[in-house]
Design a protein around this nucleic acid. Structure first.
Lengths: 237, 237
DNA sequence: TCCGCTGTTTGCTCCAGCGCAACGACCAAT
DNA sequence: ATTGGTCGTTGCGCTGGAGCAAACAGCGGA
């Protein structure tokens, strides 16, 4: 990477939670140890069970982090966007990836060798603390979603998933807020522990009520507040 | 804490994942900054929403980490034993506890003020790395359980919960392996996202098949392999 | 020994959501 | 314009598990 590129990239990464509080010089040094990685829609940065040789920070696009059950059913644990780190297990000691990372649309990331990242964590206390906070945040978020998965019916879970998607990747359009990347009924089903048929029935019912407008791999929330009411189990008034 | 106590306690905590790789001297210093805390069965170390002022390492007994839903339903996120750390969020930046910690039986812990622990993490890189690994392990474990919660029926989830309980706190007895602390049907229901009635029906059916033997707040797995078959959805042979 | 409380058991009914099937719509390539 | 493949829709039947009720069992205190 050209020196100017390193400096420019470092500047753009200052806001990334993992690098918060690092000086620009330190960050430039870290960036100079990285290399770019690209994936087209449907391609994988890594697969579950692969040797955990690389660590990533997403710089563009969307990636879904998935797990398979032993009998081949897939679930989406999380959908991440630019600035998110993923694939860090190799730097902490696990030899293989416990999840897969699949690009939902063309995606770019910076990658570091896991051994390099481990050295950085060992020598940069601020990085270790940032990583700790980052993982702790992810853990708390998953605790809440686990509780929701355990106690809520499918309609609420799907409503929540849509709200979260527009919160993370929503684009204002004429009619409401659109999820700003292609997303199928199957994707939503995998995020919420149901089937594409149930998601389809829910979206059709909500479309009839004017709550959403959807097409093939495309969803607009036309009445987000109505979905909030469903998600929070607040009675219609 | 008397100097001899500190040294003795430090020696006993060398195996705790959070303190791995620390010298005995360093650990003694850390222990000298702690103070003991005790809770009787049913008492709480802290409640969800409390100011996160303290960090804990459990030294004796069992504690369940729980969350409430907005409408008052409780789930058990995890049941921890001696050597486990809990309540760390205050050291990483969150102001309040996202979970509650309730003693299942008389329990003892060492506690540190959150500001103290934050300082230790900032100055002890090895501690920060240990904490990172610890939280990452918890996160991966919860990812797996989330996937299981999303994709498995209640019988499998309850079977898994029992297997995990004896794995973590099982005591060999005449007839099999007993869960070594009092645990109600309601507790198991809260761990597995179901109701005490469903747990009761499952345990009764399993008792009829000779898989378990149970009493009031007491469970012995008499045929753990049969529960493994249920948990893993392996057909009866 | 008795009583009150807590925990457990079991029966019955109902329904949310899955499985399966069949069909329709949309998109891209020819 | 047509075609084949992919994605989405909708109907229907079935069942796992929740909700509710009622009764029983066990335990600890008086």
């Amino acid at each position: 990477m050209a020196v100017q590129d390193v400096a420019e990239t470092a500047r753009r990464l200052l806001h990334v939670p993992l690098f918060e509080g690092l000086s620009l010089d330190t960050l430039a040094q870290i960036v100079s140890l990285s290399y770019p990685k690209q994936a087209n829609a449907g391609d994988f940065f890594f697969n579950e069970g692969d040797q955990a040789n690389e660590f990533f920070v997403l710089t563009a696009g969307r990636v879904k982090l998935t797990q398979l059950t032993p009998d081949g059913q897939q679930i989406v644990l999380r959908l991440i966007g630019p600035g998110d780190a993923f694939g860090g297990v190799g730097a902490f000691g696990d030899p293989t990836y416990p999840i897969s990372a699949e690009a939902v649309e063309t995606a770019s990331a910076l990658a570091w060798n896991s051994a390099t990242m481990r050295l950085l964590l060992e020598t940069q206390n601020q990085m270790a603390l940032n990583a700790l906070r980052f993982v702790a945040n992810r853990y708390h978020d998953l605790q809440r979603r686990y509780r929701q998965a355990m106690t809520e019916r499918v309609e609420r879970r799907v409503a929540r998933a849509l709200l979260r998607l527009v919160h993370e990747a929503g684009r204002q359009v004429d009619k409401g807020v659109e999820i700003d990347f292609p997303i199928s009924r199957q994707d939503i089903a995998e995020m919420t522990g149901t089937t594409l048929f149930t998601v389809s029935r829910l979206l059709s019912a909500w479309e009839e009520r004017g709550i959403v407008k959807s097409g093939r791999q495309q969803i607009v929330l036309t009445k987000p507040h109505a979905l909030v009411a469903i998600a929070e189990d607040i009675p219609d008034r």
